[in-house]
Design a protein around this nucleic acid. Structure first.
Length: 414
RNA sequence: GUGGCUGUAGCUCAGUUGGCAGAGCACCAGGUUGUGGCCCUGGGGGCCGUGGGUUCAAGCCCCAUCAGCCACCCCA
């Protein structure tokens, strides 16, 4: 029969890799919980309109990266390309705003984007996602950055860059975009790279972020958002940076930091690493006041961020499985039943280990015990079976003794 | 969507001007009637990614296709 292989950009996470993800998830639950965030589990499949309306019709994500298809009744559905839209939908649909003034939620799971895979970029990838609804406070922005930093420290990742910017709001951003457009009008003659000529129309902010040297040169004199912020946005941002400074939180201001999703306003941030290839962003987020209303909810503000789990995994050491307590070797087929029962007794007492399922040679079973990494190898042969004992071999020391099965637990209990 | 590199044993990879399919590691067994790691001996394993083409003959040459890696783009 023909082999069926997994589809491009999807991955099987096995054993040690799965353990790394489990560690990320439990660390997230622990740390986010310390800040009052509660877990939410939301669907992976949503109505397409949810994403086109929130992320922005003209964004790359919506234009060319979504897994979109009709269901059996012809409705357009989409595998979520990011988590925020679904979280906002759940917040609105469950009327959580009516239950508490501030709602703090986190979730994690697979996201889907139809992109060409490369280092740190998969078509099915996983994100940790945090959202806080209901507060316009700049202190919430700052606390969220503290929490993100706390989490990254907790999982042992260092040497990261926190970049910070304010994108302004619907009151002040139009003036800035106009200024930027005016500035770029002078460069219609092809002095910008091909990508930037396109970007100039679709997302002018992104031109500021171009890596082509000639473009970098041309944008040196470009207007910066920081000079166009309205008073409210300026105050908000100053409060955020002020709190971060007071805490000695390490970050850099990047007035050219752009986000690919349309809903961001005011505070935006990105955490990058120089050690994971070209896809260097490990986390990114910001404030999205207006999004909740845009998705049919009340006019309440929100802040959030997402963390790429595959990218975090690239920065983490190998997990290494926990060593079991015992391996039970059975010599002689008559002992298989008794062996299994003995193993059950040990597991009931909280120990971990496996029992032989076939009476292979002693050498073969010892080899298996060695490979399992078990602290003890228990040997149940004909003579032990006859007098209710068992041989306990300490695999590290290489010593062994014969003990009664009744006192076995006293010896090998951790 | 664009570009470069790569697909041979479970894994990492050799494979000559086109001429019998290879190594190391891993796995299994034996060397020890009931004792792991080190060592020695032996063994099982291959639609050479897939489909076409050229040829007396293709792992090798040509075309297509799928997949992987890296980069662009974009983003977590």
């Amino acid at each position: 029969m023909e082999k069926i292989q997994k589809i491009k950009g999807f991955a099987d996470l096995l054993a040690d890799q799965a353990t790394v993800f489990e560690r990320l998830e439990s660390a997230a639950r622990r740390v986010f919980g310390q800040y009052g965030y509660k877990e939410a589990r939301v669907p992976v499949l949503e109505r397409t309109e949810l994403f086109s309306r929130s992320i922005g019709e003209e964004t790359d994500v919506v234009q060319k990266e979504m897994y979109t298809f009709p269901d059996r009744k012809g409705r357009s559905l989409t595998m979520r390309p990011e988590a925020t839209a679904g979280m906002v939908r759940a917040y609105v649909e469950n009327a959580l705003h009516a239950q508490e003034e501030l709602t703090k939620l986190f979730t994690y799971g697979p996201m889907f984007r139809y992109e060409r895979p490369q280092k740190g970029r998969m078509r099915q990838f996983h994100q940790l996602d945090v959202e806080a609804f209901g507060s316009p406070s700049a202190h919430l922005d700052a606390e969220m950055l503290f929490m993100l930093g706390h989490f990254l420290t907790e999982i042992g990742i260092g040497e990261l860059n926190f970049e910070l910017n304010s994108l302004g709001c619907p009151d002040c951003r139009p003036a800035y975009q106009q200024a930027l457009n005016d500035y770029f009008k002078g460069f219609d003659g092809g002095q910008l790279c091909e990508d930037c000529l396109r970007r100039k129309l679709t997302n002018p902010l992104r031109v500021l972020d171009c890596k082509v040297p000639s473009c970098k040169e041309l944008t040196k004199g470009a207007p910066l958002i920081s000079d166009y912020l309205c008073d409210d946005c300026r105050t908000h941002f100053a409060t955020v940076t002020g709190v971060l400074d007071a805490a000695g939180f390490d970050y850099t201001l990047n007035p050219r930091l752009v986000r690919g999703l349309d809903y961001y306003v005011r505070t935006t941030f990105e955490v990058t690493s120089g050690k994971i290839g070209a896809q260097s962003a490990v986390a990114g987020g910001g404030r999205y006041d207006g999004l909740v209303k845009n998705l049919g909810g009340p006019d309440l503000p929100g802040v959030g961020f997402a963390c790429g789990m595959e990218r975090l995994a690239l920065l983490m050491g190998d997990a290494g499985a926990a060593a079991p307590d015992f391996h039970l070797a059975v010599l002689g087929a008559q002992g298989l039943d008794a062996g299994l029962l003995l193993a059950q007794k040990l597991r009931a007492a909280g120990l971990s280990g496996e029992c032989a399922l076939a009476a292979k040679s002693a050498k073969a079973q010892m080899r298996q015990a060695g490979k399992s990494g078990a602290r003890y190898c228990l040997i149940l042969g004909e003579s032990e079976l006859a007098d209710g004992t068992v041989v306990v071999k300490n695999m590290l020391a290489g010593t062994q003794e014969t003990v009664s099965q009744d006192t076995l637990l006293d010896i090998i209990a951790p």
